[in-house]
Computed example of a mutant assay.
Amino acid sequence: MPDTARADRPGHPPLGRLLRPVRGAAVGWVALAAVIGGLCTGALASRAAWETSPPQPDRAEAAAILTEVFPGHDLGDIDTPPALFVVYGHALRLGTVKTLLFGDGGEYQESATTAAALGAPPVPAEQIVSTARERLTATGWRVYDPQVTDGMSCADKTCATPLPVTNTTLLARRGDTVLNAWISSQTAPDASYLSVDLNRAPPPAVLPAGVLGTLVGALAGWVAFGWVSRRTEGRRRRGLVHGLLGVAVVLWWLPVLLAAPSLLTHHRGEPHPVWHPYWEWLGQPAASLLFLVGAVCALLATALAAAARRAAAPSTADPGGL
């Protein structure tokens, strides 16, 4: 009973009221902040779940696959990556953080074990594609429809005689392994007519981790930003706090609005054995600088909200004071 009476006294609103935003426009920006907070948390959780993935295929595994699918082609020089995710082919480290923040964050991507065959194709490119599809199907791979594009090649350095070239992309998946092959009809001795990437599909933990992280993050965002909205109600710093949170919401949502439609069009336009990682749909880490600036604004707004509550606490000695 004493606790109930205390909660009903002025200055001590119920807990549920403290955790929801004030009425009006604040409800909208709190909801937007909660949703984008949930999406970002889900993306981080899915990235953490990627750590349960086995390493990319080693040379022995890659050699067995390449020999099985592309017999008679010199793909013996196999390159294995240094990590599961790389930036410009290198493992992420402190020195590459600047690369992520200042324009090249899109280069952060899953690595692959690679191999290539140089020179003119020993048989027509169409035959290489046909043989590969037959062998992939026979050995349990799910094969996607090849994507064919036309281009031009040069017979010499001056490109005085342009030559038409056909490029074919072949995608397949078996278990947790994805094969991506490019077959070209080019005949230049220093260019590759066959390139192959082998990498891992997302491990099973990625999807539930992303979903759970999104739900937990959205709930936490609603509680946190609702708290800020309620704490600044009627305070002098309310406009500044809401302005900072508005900037944060814009900086967090802008990359999503730009990246998600583009990726959706990309996915619908060509086959994908696996979807692009969660964070790429949010425009991350390509727009990581915007995210970081938004996070600083949100933290500053939260600190100002907490300070405003203390400064605005009524004084028993001076009822008219702040």
Rank of each mutant, 00 (worst) to 15 (best):
D3N: 12
R6F: 13
R6Q: 13
D8L: 14
D8E: 13
G11T: 07
H12F: 13
H12T: 06
G16V: 07
R17C: 05
L19Q: 03
R20Y: 00
V22I: 12
V27H: 11
G28C: 08
A34D: 08
A34F: 06
L39F: 05
L39V: 11
L44M: 11
A45Y: 04
W50M: 07
W50N: 05
W50Y: 09
E51F: 03
E51H: 00
E51D: 08
E51L: 12
T52Q: 06
T52M: 09
P55C: 02
Q56V: 10
R59A: 14
A60M: 09
A63P: 00
A64S: 12
A64F: 05
L66K: 03
E68Y: 01
H73V: 07
D74G: 00
L75V: 02
G76M: 06
P81W: 09
V87I: 13
Y88D: 15
G89S: 03
T96I: 01
V97M: 14
V97D: 07
G103A: 04
G106V: 09
T114I: 08
A117I: 02
A117G: 00
L118C: 00
G119Y: 06
E126A: 15
R133F: 04
E134K: 12
E134Q: 14
E134F: 01
Y144M: 15
D145S: 06
D145L: 02
P146V: 07
M152L: 06
T158W: 03
C159M: 10
A160L: 13
P162K: 15
P164W: 12
T169N: 11
T169G: 08
L171N: 04
R174C: 03
D176R: 04
D176N: 10
N180Y: 01
W182F: 10
S184D: 06
S185K: 10
Q186D: 15
Q186P: 01
T187W: 13
T187R: 12
P189M: 06
A191H: 14
V196G: 01
D197F: 09
L198N: 06
P202C: 00
P204M: 05
V206C: 02
V206I: 06
A209I: 00
G210C: 00
L212S: 01
A218F: 05
V223I: 15
V223H: 03
A224D: 02
S229R: 02
G234W: 02
R237Y: 00
V241H: 00
H242P: 04
H242E: 15
G246E: 00
V250C: 05
W252R: 02
W253R: 10
W253L: 15
L254H: 11
A259M: 03
A260Q: 04
L263A: 10
E270I: 13
P271K: 07
V274N: 12
P277R: 03
L289W: 03
L290N: 12
V293Y: 14
G294D: 09
C297T: 06
A303Y: 11
A303H: 11
A305F: 01
A311G: 10
S315K: 12
D318V: 09
